[in-house]
Amino acid sequence: MIAPGPELSPARRPSKINVRVLRQDGPGTPPYWERHQVDYEPDMNVISVLQKIAAQATTFDGKKVSPVAWDCGCLEEVCGSCTMVINGRVRQSCSALVDRLLEDNPEEIQLQPMTKFPVVRDLMIDRSRLFHSLKRVQAWVPVDSYFDMGAGPRIPREDQEQNYPLSQCMSCGCCLEACPQFNKVEVIRHAGETDEAFDARKKQAYDAEFIGPHAISQAMLFNSHPVGKNLQKERLETLTGTGGIQACGNAQNCVAVCPKEIPLTTSIARAGRAATLHSIKKLFDR
């Protein structure tokens, strides 16, 4: 149903919005800034700005260009797709309301791709490393089968209330973008390299680097599940291995930028404690 939007009446409502987009035609090509201008409408968010830019496909000075590429999905901040750097800060573009952005900077809105992931094109980035981290920590409950075996273990409300926020992580990558300890890893495909060889090389490169706050938090989530716990040791091995929890520098940006307000630093500290106990235990059980 289309119901017309509410007529906002801020005094400083512009008729046009200036947008500067950091574009890049593909991996390995140089990025460049491009200026666009779109008509202002009440209730806009960055997605609707980008939709207008796509429909116009014309820059500020009338040059025909290809539409800006970007990624989006649910538009209500639960899928994590549309994460980008807006006016210097990482966030979802769907929940970035234009009126608010203009309050901060009436001159223009600045859009950039995330800087910690390889750019695919324009604002689209390749976040496969983020998902690979979830494999590294084996973020799942190792059930026996999917046959009907009755209900799962009873879970105290307190545990559910601790775990639910962690399981709201939508893998958007904000925490990684803002983390000063998480550095970009870009593996460039060799000419003629097969998919398998390229994937293997990427995997190796990812495995050597910081796993990231999101994965640490997921490891804690599954370590506190009655059955998920069965992989506790393996997860702690990963967390104390290369690129594990020790890479955290306690800047705590992750928790500050997380759109879902997931207590990531609490997870990190819990993981720190578990890692301490795990390594002491290992030292004496050897």
């Binding site: 799942w140 409950v141 059930v143 999917y146 009907d148 075996m149 009755g150 209900a151 799962g152 009873r154 879970i155 105290p156 409300r157 545990d159 559910q160 775990n163 639910y164 399981s167 599954f222 599940h225 059955v227 998920g228």
Partner: peptide
């Protein structure tokens, strides 16, 4: 049965004070 399975897979369903 579907809900039981999802429960086993670790879905964080809201709980009663008793844990159901």
């Amino acid at each position: 049965k579907v809900i039981d399975l999802m429960d086993r897979l670790g879905v964080t369903f809201n709980r009663t004070p008793e844990g159901y």
